[in-house]
Amino acid sequence: MSSPRVLSIQSHMVSGYCGNKAATFPLQLLGFDVDVMNTVNFSNHTGYPSWTGERATGEHLLQLYKGLQTNGLVEYTHILTGYIGSAQNLSAVTEIIAQLRTHGDPFFVLDPVMGDNGQLYVHSDVIPLYRKLMKYANAITPNQFEAEILADKKITDVKSCLEVLDILHTTGVENVVITSVSLLPSDVAAHAAHWHPHHHHHHKDEETTEPSMYCVCSSKGDQDETKKVFAIGFPTYDGYFTGTGDLFSALLVAWLDEALVEAQPPAKAGSAYGLGSKEMHTPLVRACVKVVATMKAVVLRSYLAQMGITSGGQLDRTQASSAAVIKRCELRLIQSKKDIEQPDEQGVEAVELSWIEKGKH
């Protein structure tokens, strides 16, 4: 059987791990042939004090696609898109994806890279185009800010997060993963669909008023199928990280592909990830647990390397303006080969969320 083959359309850096540089190695390790189409070609990522290079135009991207098509090279099993940049490029990519769908049924993972931490780093004219492109996507991986932009609704708690997921599903996308959402652990516990010992044991911790970070994933199939939503908590570090979203989306392509293949025989029920044996896990949450497990390992390894350069202290933002410091803050991707191939799921727990809030004990 031939390897799955993915067309990855996103940015390229000569040095460092962002965009296609963060996506290609993990996908290849996990058995994918990867064709890369670069939306920018920069010397390094834009977190450095300076960079050189050029941005592709929409015409340039269409020309590349035409060359592939002429030579019969457009039989893809998967499509992954990341940073596209301009509205012109996004229109071209939408056209490419529409054409690729005439050559089969590639599974399309869309990372709507628009901004973070409340700030857009693309022109706002791309927002309606992303909403249109979503109808082609099998899965989308926005961060909290991007999910809020696409749904035109703020996430302030679990309830509003569930509402945003509903809005995003209405575009027709089956799998929605908000890669990082800030939520109160007590709020997550109050909306947990199933009681299990973990909640009881950590009840005091969950009363904290400090929010934690979660990956929240939601899958919705046919019209009569109910939506299943899970929250997966993960630790955060006061460091400098670039390319984590690109790595997340690439890992999701691979692990969701495996989970969907495994789900084709009679659906498996299992006791993994803290739920009782009678509870069904969706392919999406099984994939997301593996993705988060790898992300935890890569980010921790990268953080420990950063701590090493700051003599055990926190990374001062003024230091992060130095090219020499930022270079040493690049993701430790190659060093994480084992964590990419065999994610350690120990301690990575998926909690199913329900609309019904339970009373606090």
Rank of each mutant, 00 (worst) to 15 (best):
M1C: 05
S2M: 03
P4L: 11
V6H: 01
Q10E: 05
V14W: 13
A22E: 01
A22S: 03
V34A: 01
V34Y: 02
T39K: 04
N44G: 05
N44E: 10
Y48P: 02
W51D: 06
R55F: 14
L61C: 00
L73H: 04
E75G: 03
T77P: 01
T77S: 10
T77W: 05
L80I: 14
T81M: 02
T81L: 00
G85D: 01
A87I: 05
Q88P: 04
L90Y: 02
T94N: 06
I96E: 02
I97H: 06
I97R: 00
H103I: 09
D105R: 13
F108C: 01
V113G: 05
V113H: 05
M114R: 04
Q119C: 04
V122N: 00
V126E: 02
I127E: 03
P128W: 12
P128D: 05
L133V: 14
L133F: 08
K135C: 13
K135S: 15
A139D: 00
A139C: 15
Q144C: 07
Q144P: 00
I149S: 06
I149W: 09
L150N: 06
D152I: 02
D157V: 08
T170W: 13
V173D: 01
V173M: 08
V173N: 03
E174Q: 14
S180Q: 06
L184V: 11
V188T: 11
A189C: 00
A190M: 08
A190H: 10
P197N: 12
H199E: 13
K204T: 13
E207H: 09
T208P: 04
S212F: 14
M213F: 14
K220C: 01
D222P: 04
D222H: 14
E225G: 00
K227C: 11
F230P: 02
F234A: 04
P235Y: 08
T236F: 07
G243A: 08
T244V: 15
S249D: 00
L251V: 07
A259Q: 10
E262Y: 07
Q264F: 04
P265Q: 12
A267K: 15
G274W: 13
G274H: 12
G274I: 12
G274M: 09
G276N: 11
S277K: 11
S277L: 06
S277T: 10
M280E: 10
M280W: 07
H281R: 12
P283V: 10
L284S: 03
A287H: 10
C288L: 03
V291G: 03
V292S: 04
T294K: 02
T294M: 07
K296A: 05
V298M: 01
L300I: 11
L300R: 13
L300K: 13
R301S: 15
L304M: 11
Q306T: 09
G308I: 13
I309H: 07
A320C: 10
A323G: 02
I334W: 11
Q335L: 08
S336N: 07
K338V: 06
E341H: 00
Q342T: 11
P343D: 06
P343L: 07
D344G: 03
E345K: 00
G347I: 13
V348Y: 05
I356N: 06
K358G: 11
G359S: 12
